[in-house]
Write a protein that binds this DNA or RNA. Structure first.
Length: 841
DNA sequence: ATAGGGGTAGTC
DNA sequence: GACTACCCCTAT
């Protein structure tokens, strides 16, 4: 049930991307709320998988945070619930707010005004913010203040600019700036800000962001490790983290970059940033800073270390700084030079390979941005300066390019993405079709498919056995959503309307490269609805083509990989089910064939025996033998016969297989000896040693003869005595026994004895035989006078009571009289015959 | 489990 | 062919 909810929840995720944001947001939020309501806390504790699913919801919430943050501000109910839910890990309902603030602060796409609004709305004090959070917020302020490689580069003389020590904290740098430029002046301080060359510092800090608490929490949940206070690897919610100089906690999963700061500080790109920063931007940033920074103004350091060293910043430096971003690539070797492909691969590795990283989506966005930026920097330094940051910050990008500032309501961005994104070409259709249909199957000879499989299979295959589908499907739905989102962001970030005379809609149709925004010989993604057009040289990695030579962009390659993976998964699941069914069928069939084989063998052996006998091997060719199955009688009551018969049958089966395999005549005799007491009788004369064979030695080392088989029945050895060919008069039909005289018919009721004559299995007892094989008849055994008398006496006795005749009782009563092969049916039939008239012959 | 009908194979 | 013993099946 819960999985269903999760599925519903995640099925709603793509909608948020492709339908009007408000509506989809409401749907999503409502779904999440429903789930939260219906998910009791104790359940979350008890079932890690539910926690897992919930963590995905959390993640999706925050993944979409830029779209729903405003809603979060007004939804204290959900926040309270989340707080209570997570309260089991820590202290107090305000904690989720802190997490969210910290988390959202790491997003460049989220305006600092939103962060400020969050802080104001949250039941937390600014002082409650942890160092990491403050650092992130400060970084965001710096980023907004100075803009992403904004147009200031070409204004200030390079030599006069001041750089900051990378070891300093963002907070300190911000304080320093705010100290020198008063908050009130910040609104108009555009040119003044040019004194500082903060970009290397910002890039360094951005590249070395520690993993925020929420991500650690998510990781902890996903790893299903108990999240307890004091756990070093989980959010411990030390609001005053003992961070290192870069703000990284010990054990932070995001390693340090820029080990060599001096190496980084060689960038001169910013020297070209001479375009004045837009007034509106400065105003807004300044306004935000008032709320975010003012509280710390008292703590500003006058002796803030300013690294006065001048430096150059070049593209290579940028690359270095970003290349160190730890990207858990899989098979990067084949794709390393491509930012995009790296990004794609990372998605696979991170989100799929990790099982349930249902969207490191936001991170992915950044990673792709960075890497794309690097790619640009590598191959296209001559491109516009803004392009590097275009990819880094779609929102700010839009702000710069379009000359407007997006609304604080980030849903505007969503519209933007949709407008510019994949749906542009197919506004009427669901963009998911890009991923769900019409993908030509082409071989992914690199990381995508292979790495994906390798990373996922071991764990997931196992997990799938237990928990098929819903959860996993959600995961991949989310994953594909991530890809779609990234793609949408990327496309929108790459759209440069200034060079698009036809407007955005005509961009791809005009076959302008998404990277350099120039036309020419471009590659057009062949996926249905994908608008991506790119020069092969801009791709940064070898282009991928299918068998028909159709090009596919990295996004679609990734989606196809996931699609193929899901398809393969379905096939595997189906095959597994079919295999199970087949095995079950085989099991049944085997049982049938065992019976069939047994029956067949019985017939064959009979024929063989006849042949043997006809050849005189056994010297009794005159006799006509009929192999019949014996019915072993256990104890005084015949009622136990049926129960044990199967055991005997099983033994036969074993012998039959062996004989058939070896075609050993002796063994055939042996097996036949197991089945037909006729030849037992017959062989008895020639081979009196009747003890050599036992069931423990079924292979038939004893190739002589069997007069008495010991068949284990119910844990006891049941001797199968054989009866010599009847030569006696009917009155003594069962007089002779084995030569040793160990048993006598009259003593038969004292022990487990074998029928004095062979009894074949009733057809009814072998109903499972398929096709039915007619059973051989027992040897005809005339009734003795004593038997008739006994029968008559007993029947008349019970007949006087009226009702039915208890043949079974009568048989039990007269075991000493009735021959040991008699059955209740025999008694009944005999009585019928007797009633008809005259005694039996 | 029993009753009863009907069938079959073996024997004479 | 009659008889008998055994067998199969169905109904209760």
């Amino acid at each position: 049930m819960l999985q269903l909810f999760f599925a519903v929840a995640f099925s709603a995720v793509p909608l948020t991307l492709y339908v009007p944001p408000v509506r989809s947001l409401n749907l999503f939020v409502q779904t999440v709320e429903d789930i939260l309501r219906q998910t009791a806390l104790y359940t979350l504790r008890a079932y890690p998988r539910i926690r897992l699913g919930l963590s995905r919801i959390f993640h999706s919430i925050f993944h979409l945070s830029r779209y729903i943050v405003c809603w979060l501000l007004n939804s204290s109910t959900l926040m309270d619930e989340i707080g209570r839910m997570l309260g089991m890990f820590s202290s107090g309902p305000s904690l989720p707010w802190l997490w969210i603030i910290e988390y959202l602060s790491s997003f460049r796409q989220i305006d600092t005004s939103i962060i400020r609004g969050l802080i104001e709305a949250a039941p937390v004090l600014p002082d409650d913010l942890g160092k990491n959070t403050r650092e992130m917020i400060a970084l965001r302020c710096l980023e907004e203040l100075f803009g992403p490689t904004n147009g200031l580069r070409d204004v200030a003389p390079p030599d006069s600019r001041v750089v900051f020590d990378l070891a300093a904290s963002c907070e300190d740098v911000l304080k320093h700036i705010v100290q020198e430029v008063s908050l009130s002046n910040l609104r108009k301080a555009g040119p003044e800000l040019l004194r500082w060359d903060v970009h290397p510092f910002i890039m360094h800090k951005r590249a070395s962001l520690p993993k925020c608490a929420l991500e650690q929490l998510k990781d902890s949940i996903l790893e299903e490790t108990p999240v307890l206070d004091g756990d070093e690897n989980t959010p411990t919610w030390r609001l005053d983290d003992s961070d290192d100089e870069n703000g990284n906690r010990e054990g932070n999963l995001i390693p340090q970059t820029h080990k060599d700061d001096n190496e980084v500080l060689q960038d001169g790109l910013l020297e070209r940033n001479l375009i004045p920063i837009k007034r509106c931007k400065s105003d807004l940033v300044a306004g935000n800073l008032v709320g975010l920074v003012s509280c710390n103004q008292d703590g500003m350091h006058n002796d803030f270390p300013v690294n006065a060293k001048k430096f150059k910043q070049d593209a290579t430096c940028t690359i270095q700084s970003v290349e160190k971003i730890p990207i858990p690539l899989h098979g990067v070797e084949q794709l390393d030079e491509s930012g995009k492909i790296i990004k794609v691969t990372e998605i696979e590795g991170n989100n799929l390979g990790k099982d349930s990283q249902a969207g490191e989506g936001d991170e992915d966005v950044f990673v792709v941005s960075r890497t794309l930026g690097q790619s640009d920097a590598v191959g296209h330094v001559e491109l516009q300066d803004n392009e590097m940051e275009n990819a880094q910050n779609a929102d700010i990008m839009g702000e710069q390019k379009y000359g407007y500032r997006p609304s604080k309501n980030v849903m505007m961005d969503e519209s933007n993405h949709v407008e510019n994104g994949a749906l542009e070409k197919s506004p009427g259709g669901d963009a998911s079709e890009n991923f769900d249909q019409g993908f030509p199957l082409y071989s992914l000879n690199s990381t995508s498919a292979v790495g994906l499989q390798q990373n996922i299979e071991p764990d997931e295959a196992k997990a799938d056995m237990e928990h098929p589908c819903a959860e996993k499907m959600c995961e991949y739905v989310d994953e594909r959503f991530n890809i779609a989102l990234n793609k949408s962001l990327f496309l929108s970030s790459q759209c440069i309307p200034s060079q698009d005379p036809l407007g955005k809609s005509g961009w791809t149709e005009q076959k302008f490269c998404v990277k350099c925004n120039k036309n020419g010989q471009v590659l057009v993604c062949s996926s249905s609805g994908c608008p991506l057009v790119v020069h092969e040289s801009c791709l940064g990695s070898p282009a991928r083509f299918d068998d028909k030579g159709n090009f596919y962009c990295p996004f679609c390659v990734c989606s196809v990989s996931i699609t193929k993976y899901l398809e393969a998964k379905d096939k595997t699941s189906l095959a597994r089910k079919e295999l199970d069914a087949f095995l079950e069928h085989c099991s049944k069939k085997l049982t049938e064939q065992q019976w069939k084989l047994q029956s067949h063998l019985r017939l064959n052996v009979d024929e063989d025996l006849v042949g043997i006998q006809m050849n005189g091997h056994l010297g009794e060719s005159k006799h006509k033998f009929i192999s019949q199955k014996r019915e072993v009688k256990c104890g005084p009551s015949a009622s136990c016969l049926d129960g044990n018969k199967l055991c005997v049958e099983e033994k036969f089966v074993g012998g039959a297989v062996r004989v058939q395999g070896e075609k050993n005549e002796e063994q055939e005799k042996l097996v036949h000896g197991q089945q037909s007491m006729r030849e037992h009788e017959h062989q008895q004369d020639q081979l009196p040693d009747n003890r050599k064979y036992s069931d423990d030695n079924p292979a038939g080392e004893n190739t002589k003869t069997i007069l008495e088989n010991q068949v284990e029945v119910g844990g006891k050895n049941v001797k199968e005595a054989v009866q010599p060919q009847i030569t006696n008069p009917p009155q003594k039909p069962v007089c002779a026994f084995n030569g040793d005289g160990e048993e006598s018919p009259t003593a038969a009721n004292d022990k487990f004895i074998v029928s004095s004559y062979s009894i074949r299995l009733r057809k009814r007892e072998t109903k499972c035989t398929f096709p039915p094989i007619p059973q051989l008849r027992r040897k005809k055994l005339p009734w003795t006078k004593n038997e008739e008398e006994m029968l008559r006496r007993e029947v008349e006795k019970y007949a006087s009571h009226g009702g039915t005749v208890p043949w079974k009782k009568i048989l039990d009563m007269g075991t000493s009289v009735f021959l040991s092969g008699r059955t209740t049916v025999d008694l009944k039939d005999k009585w019928r015959n007797m009633c008809k008239g005259g005694p039996s012959m």
